[in-house]
């Protein structure tokens, strides 16, 4: 084993970790906000529900890679896009990747939150209404806190999937973890060592993430733990 090469590889790959984390963090943040809006829209009206269902169908039903290609190569074909105020963003691979990742995770996230909303006990909602809560107060104080707690474990998986999905951004020239690994391979022709190192780094990131989500779960749902009466 060439320890010197492994060390050097790990060091170079480590320099790409911030890019990977940034991609994941920004797209998950935007995606979560969007998912919440979509889930609420879906619960609000028949037309809203139909629009959200169509959105989820498209973004969950087609490959993320295709979505990235369509946004990166496709949007620039339209004059309207090139002349719009969005072009300074959309011409850059970084924002195209963020957009695709965020739109994609929002579709999955809205379904996860929908499940959480459905799990809110009807009696808890009734108790809020009967106490005189407005719709807004009811959602802010009762429905969303219960729904999001319920959705948290599934959302944790979604975040981990997103960290791994950022590797697809390497296809549109972004040198995040996987992109950097491919560069090293093309210089060294040592695919196994390099991709094993890259895989280990993803594992390490997701190990920390899993722990963090678990910790958050424990903090937010002390009532779900078995405490003797």
């Amino acid at each position: 084993m060439d320890l010197a090469f492994l060390g050097e590889t790990l060091l170079r790959l480590a320099s790409a970790i911030p890019t990977t984390l940034e991609l994941a963090f920004v797209s998950v943040s935007i995606g979560l906000a969007l998912a919440l809006l979509l889930a609420l829209l879906r619960a609000s009206s028949v037309i809203g529900a139909a629009c959200v269902r169509a959105y989820v169908f498209v973004f969950r039903g087609s490959p993320l890679l295709v979505q990235i290609f369509l946004i990166y190569y496709g949007l620039g074909q339209f004059d309207a896009v090139r002349e719009s105020f969005l072009w300074p963003f959309l011409r850059r691979p970084w924002w195209c990747a963020i957009l695709a990742l965020a739109l994609n995770t929002a579709a999955y996230g809205s379904e996860i939150i929908r499940g959480g909303l459905a799990a809110v006990p009807a009696g808890s909602i009734e108790a809020g209404r009967v106490a005189g809560m407005s719709r807004f107060t009811l959602y802010r104080r009762i429905v969303l806190p219960l729904a999001l707690r319920q959705a948290l474990p599934a959302y944790g998986s979604e975040i981990i999937i997103m960290v791994k999905s950022t590797s697809l951004a390497s296809i549109i020239t972004i040198t995040e973890l996987t992109g950097t690994a491919r560069q090293i391979v093309s210089d060294s022709f040592r695919a196994i060592e390099v991709f094993v190192c890259a895989g280990l780094i993803y594992l390490a990131i997701n190990f920390v993430l899993t722990r963090a989500v678990l910790l958050l779960e424990r903090t937010l749902t002390p009532h779900a733990r078995g405490v003797p009466r």
Binding site: A131, G132, P145
Partner: peptide, 20 residues
Amino acid sequence: VNRLRGQLGFVFQSFNLWAH
């Protein structure tokens, strides 16, 4: 309706306390 509900106290058969 919300204001008048706020002047009553309602106790349910199944308690309906907020679990969180």
